[in-house]
């Protein structure tokens, strides 16, 4: 372990972990907004918008996240737009998250029985009002647990950003492993770092699943 103390390693990994957390958080927040927009398009009564949303979802669900990041990163630079790896990673993960969340949430909206649409239509609510006051509040409850569950996937998914050169946890680990020749220790610590981020989310999702099941 020549020049590196364990303290140095932990500090470097912590720094990487911080970027992984920031990238995850960015993807959650922007991906949720994107997901809402795609959801709105997907549920619109306009065939062109529905087609757009469906295509978006299918493309991002049907290709590996790594390819999506490559295409964003290298595609944009081919087009003459040079963006830093972190921006490419944030953009790629946001699109990816948007597509999955839109699909998860659409499933929840569809799970609301048709009688709720009819009941609210008969009370003279228009489509927006039905969504806002009847369908989404119920769908949201259903959506919380699978959404948090998916966020765990996003946290782990951020590791592919290392491949386009973004120095987050995995990339930090890779560099340290090369420098210290201690890959087992380093990657063990990297895995522990992901676990540290994901496990509370998993617990929280399971907790929600239990409590929301009994709640209204």
């Amino acid at each position: 372990m020549n020049d590196f103390t364990l303290g140095d390693i932990l500090l470097a990994l912590l720094h990487g972990l911080q970027w992984t957390a920031i990238l995850s958080l960015t993807a959650f927040v922007l991906g949720s907004l994107g997901g809402l927009i795609i959801l709105a398009l997907r549920l619109a009564h306009r065939p062109a918008l529905v087609w757009l949303a469906k295509t978006f979802i299918e493309v991002f669900q049907g290709t590996p996240l790594l390819m999506q990041l490559f295409i964003v990163f290298f595609g944009l630079s081919l087009g003459g737009v040079e963006i830093p790896p972190w921006l490419a990673a944030a953009l790629g993960l946001t699109l990816y998250t948007s597509a999955y969340l839109a699909e998860i949430w659409r499933g929840c909206v569809n799970a609301i029985p048709n009688t709720q649409w009819e009941g609210s239509a008969a009370l003279a609510l228009n489509r927006y009002q039905q969504m806002r006051h009847v369908i989404l509040p119920q769908a949201l409850r259903m959506a919380i647990a699978p959404t948090v569950g998916f966020l765990v996937q996003v946290v782990k998914g951020t590791s592919v950003a290392s491949i386009i050169g973004f120095v987050e946890l995995t990339k930090t680990g890779g560099m340290l492993a090369n420098a210290t020749f201690e890959p087992f220790l380093i990657y063990g610590l990297v895995a522990a770092g992901y676990f540290l981020l994901c496990y509370p989310l998993s617990l929280y999702s399971r907790h929600l699943e239990r409590t929301l099941h009994v709640a209204r």
Binding site: T115, G119, P137, Q138
Partner: peptide, 9 residues
């Protein structure tokens, strides 16, 4: 309606 269709939330 037959099934009441109250809003459960």
């Amino acid at each position: 309606f037959q099934q009441f269709n109250l809003f459960p939330h």
